[in-house]
C-alpha cells in the first residue's frame, strides 16, 4: 500500500552531466508505472534514485507520503528486480529468497512459510535447493521475482527484468508479471526500452527522453494522442509515419485536409492507412490522400508491411493478410481525418 511521488527530481553527476532534468510523476497506490525511453534517457537513473542507489541531486522522492531522499535503500522498504537478476551466486535459491527476511530479523518459521508459499506461487518449489548457476535464464528470472515478492515490500522496482530472456519467454513473463502485480496489489515502477512491454504492462506510462518526461498517461491515450513527434515515433510498431509540411502543403500530388496553421509535421500510423484504387466514400470528408511508390514488401503472415516513398518522405503502410503488390507499384494511400496527427515545428502536438 503505497504511492510514489516524484517532485522535480534531478540528477547531476559530479562533472556536470545532468542525467535527469526535473521529473515529476505521481504514481497512485497499486498502480504499475512503466518508464520507457531510449538508452540514456535517464529512466534507469530515475529508478535507481527511487531505490536509493543513487543520491537525488534536487527535488524530492516520497514513498507512501514520506520523503525518502535522505534514507538508504535498506530503510525504504522496496524490492528490486535487476536486469542481470543479481542473484547471490554462493547461496541456494532458498537462501537467496530468505536473505532479505533474515536481515530484517523475521522469525525463522515465518521466513520458511513465506519462502515456501512464494516459491509455490512462482512454481519454484523444486528449485529451492539449487544454486543460481544451475538454473536456466527463465528460472533465474523467477527467483529474482521471488526474492522481491517474498519480502512483501511497499514498492516493486523492475530494471529491464525481461531483456535477457528470449522473445517467447519474454511474452510469457510479461503476462505473468502483470497478473502477479495485480493480484499482489503492490505499487510498481518498471523500466524498459521495449515499447511493446511498456504498452502491455502499464497502468501509467511515462515516456522519457533526454532526462525529461515527454508524456505520461494511460498507454492507449498516449498511443492515440502522442504529445510529440518523439512519442509518436517511439510508441507503436512500426512507428508512426511522419511527413514534413511546407507552409501547410505537401510536396507532390496529394490531397490534404485542412491543416492547422502552425503544423510542421503530419503523422499517421501504418495501421491507420487504407490502400484503395478508387477514393470511394472517404476521400470526400477531408481525408488524406497521397500517391505512394512501393519500395519493399514485408509479409509477416497476418499482415503485410509496405515500405513506400511518398510526398518527399518514407512511409510504412500496413495491409491485412497477403498482398499482390510488389516493389515499383504505384498506389493511392488514404488516411481518415480523425487518424491524422499534426505537430508544430518544436515537435509538439498541435
Amino acid at each position: 500500500m503505497a504511492t510514489v511521488d516524484l517532485k522535480d527530481v534531478r540528477k547531476v553527476y559530479p562533472g556536470g552531466v545532468e542525467a535527469v532534468k526535473g521529473v515529476s510523476i505521481a504514481i497512485p497506490d497499486k498502480a504499475l508505472c512503466v518508464l520507457v525511453g531510449p538508452s540514456g534517457c535517464g529512466k534507469s537513473t530515475l529508478l535507481r534514485m527511487i531505490a536509493g542507489l543513487e543520491t537525488i541531486s534536487a527535488g524530492s522522492c516520497a514513498i507512501d507520503g514520506k520523503v525518502v531522499n535522505a534514507i538508504g535503500p535498506t530503510e525504504r522498504d522496496i524490492a528490486m528486480v535487476f536486469q542481470n537478476y543479481a542473484l547471490y551466486p554462493h547461496m541456494k535459491v532458498y537462501d537467496n529468497m530468505a536473505y532479505g527476511l533474515r536481515n530484517r530479523g523475521t522469525p525463522k518459521d515465518e521466513i520458511d512459510r513465506r519462502v515456501r508459499s512464494t516459491a509455490k506461487t512462482l512454481e519454484l518449489e523444486h528449485l529451492l535447493e539449487r544454486r543460481p548457476r544451475e538454473l536456466s535464464g527463465g528460472q533465474r528470472q523467477r527467483v529474482a521475482m521471488g526474492r522481491a515478492i517474498v519480502r512483501n515490500p511497499k514498492v516493486f522496482l523492475f530494471d529491464e527484468p525481461l531483456s535477457n530472456l528470449d522473445a517467447k519467454l519474454r511474452g510469457q513473463m510479461r503476462v505473468e508479471i502483470k497478473n502477479l502485480q495485480r493480484s499482489l496489489g503492490v505499487t510498481s515502477v518498471y523500466v524498459t526500452h521495449d515499447q511493446l512491454e511498456a504498452m502491455t504492462l502499464a497502468d501509467v506510462l511515462v515516456v522519457m527522453n533526454a532526462g525529461l518526461v515527454e508524456q505520461s498517461g494511460a498507454p492507449l491515450d498516449i498511443y492515440e494522442k502522442p504529445a510529440s513527434t518523439f512519442v509518436a515515433s517511439f510508441i507503436g510498431a512500426p512507428p508512426m509515419n511522419l511527413l514534413p509540411l511546407r507552409s501547410g502543403q505537401f510536396e507532390g500530388a496529394v490531397t490534404l485536409p485542412a491543416v492547422p496553421g502552425n503544423a510542421a509535421t503530419l503523422g499517421f500510423r501504418p495501421e491507420d492507412c487504407e490502400v484503395r484504387v478508387e477514393a470511394g466514400g472517404i476521400a470526400a470528408d477531408g481525408a488524406l490522400r497521397l500517391l505512394a511508390r512501393v519500395e519493399g514488401v514485408e509479409p509477416v503472415g497476418a499482415e503485410s508491411f509496405l515500405y513506400c516513398q511518398a510526398a518527399g518522405g518514407r512511409i510504412v503502410v500496413r495491409v491485412p493478410g497477403r498482398t499482390e503488390l510488389q516493389a515499383g507499384d504505384q498506389l493511392p494511400v488514404f488516411a481518415r481525418r480523425e487518424k491524422l496527427h499534426f505537430f508544430g515545428s518544436d515537435g509538439k502536438r498541435v
Binding site: 553527476y13 534507469s44 537513473t45 543520491t55 535503500p73 536486469q83 526500452h193
Partner: peptide
C-alpha cells in the same frame, strides 16, 4: 538488448554509493 550504462564515469570523485 542490454542498455549500456547511462551513468557517466565518476572519475576523480568518490562514489557516494549505498549506505556509504
Amino acid at each position: 538488448m542490454a542498455e549500456p550504462s547511462t551513468r557517466p564515469p565518476a572519475s576523480g570523485h568518490d562514489k557516494l554509493m549505498i549506505g556509504q
